[in-house]
Design a protein around this nucleic acid. Sequence first.
DNA 1: TTTACTGGTTACTTTATCGTTACCAGTATC
DNA 2: GATACTGGTAACGATAAAGTAACCAGTAAA
Lengths: 117, 117
Amino acid sequence: MDRDIFICHNCPMTRTMATIGTKWKPIIIYTIGKKKVRFGVIHAKMGIISKKVLTDQLRELEEDGIVKREVFKELPPRVEYSLTPKGLELLPILNMLTRWNQKHHGNTSGKDRKPKL
Amino acid sequence: MDRDIFICHNCPMTRTMATIGTKWKPIIIYTIGKKKVRFGVIHAKMGIISKKVLTDQLRELEEDGIVKREVFKELPPRVEYSLTPKGLELLPILNMLTRWNQKHHGNTSGKDRKPKL
DNA sequence: TTTACTGGTTACTTTATCGTTACCAGTATC
DNA sequence: GATACTGGTAACGATAAAGTAACCAGTAAA
């Protein structure tokens, strides 16, 4: 349901989660990093996301000004993605999150809540 | 499906998202903040999450050592939740995320991707 | 005796998100 | 002519996540 009136609706954390809080977006941003990468490379690196969902999420990230999409008029098509300045500001924050997780779990801890992928 | 072998599985960002990347967890952590709050207060402040899901998410956060749950032997029952030291380390990072969002959207921008709540 | 309170639990339903499959187009390669 | 390439799109199906509704228990209040 689409409720417009509730207490937490406009709290900053809720809005932030709406923008980048989906399952894949932080991982996509993290995968792109400071580079310019092609769609196929992102897809190969991420390995398990479907092409359809990756396309959808990249579109939303582009719409939100987090990711820049460059189309080269070639065949077969070549499209490169990179983070905008706005997107680049997220990287250190995401890195802090991953360092927090690593500090508390290490890289290969068996006790991690396993990703549902 | 539960796939055990893929490229991005053990990347730190994926593991981090598995731990706190669900829709509600960052908002719960943000709502608790530095205080000790009762279940009913968290629920009232968040406003739209169901009791069942709030209970479930708090349980997982407790299991992951992010949230501390204190039961007082009273009737009707009184349970207070607070962040553990591990959980408190997340707060500044979540605050950075919300500041990033506010910097780029402001508090009431109509252009935000609306939370699907 | 009935209602209210709190913080749950459970079975089932609904919604959101993700994935599958087939298709597209235009060049290059075989 | 068929296949391969890339980066998509669309319709449909599957799964995960969230929500609903009813229930629980034991005191207190009405």
